[in-house]
């Protein structure tokens, strides 16, 4: 009896693994939003910096950490990324840091704009929207000054 129970563990494991994949596939079809941003909705001149940010920063933690940190101060991002660069094995070089900060400063500017809109105040400076535009709207601008606030 005991031996037969042991033998059933492997088929149960296979079934459980298959069920697990099926459940995830179900979720995958129901939800279409990940942790990061959709690069295609970013201005072209910021996409490479975003990819660098996504690659380097997801090595140790989820991208949700920085993206939901609600940091709107550029100087705070400088200190934050400096601290992360010094983490052992981060793989973030000083050159990487420049690119990551370009994206994060862009992201912070967009947050500031969204907050200003929410408060009914005029936007502090023009930045392209990160949220997808309505189908009839024009694509987001990708001017150099908008990409590097």
């Amino acid at each position: 009896m005991i031996r037969s129970r042991s033998r059933t563990a492997a088929p149960i494991a296979a079934f459980a693994a298959a069920a697990l994949v099926a459940i995830v596939a179900l979720f995958a079809s129901a939800c279409q939003r990940g942790e990061g941003l959709d690069p295609s909705k970013l201005p072209e001149n910021i996409r490479a910096d975003y990819e660098l940010f996504a690659n380097r920063c997801s090595k140790c933690h989820s991208l949700a950490r920085p993206l939901t940190a609600n940091i709107t101060d550029d100087e705070q991002w400088v200190l934050y990324v400096n601290r992360m660069r010094r983490q052992p094995g981060s793989g973030i070089s000083r050159t990487d840091q420049d690119g990551i900060l370009r994206f994060l400063k862009y992201y912070a500017a967009d947050l500031r704009r969204q907050q200003a809109e929410k408060n009914g105040a005029p936007a502090p400076q023009a930045v392209p929207v990160l949220t997808p535009p309505p189908p009839t709207a024009a694509p987001p601008p990708s001017t150099p000054e908008a990409g590097a606030p």
């Binding site: 492997a10 942790e35 991208l63 949700a64």
Partner: peptide, 17 residues
């Protein structure tokens, strides 16, 4: 597997033998 259903929220499923 880990599935991000929303930014900052993941579902994790696993089987261990």
């Amino acid at each position: 597997t880990a599935y991000a259903i929303e930014r900052g929220l993941r579902i994790k499923l696993s089987t261990e033998l």
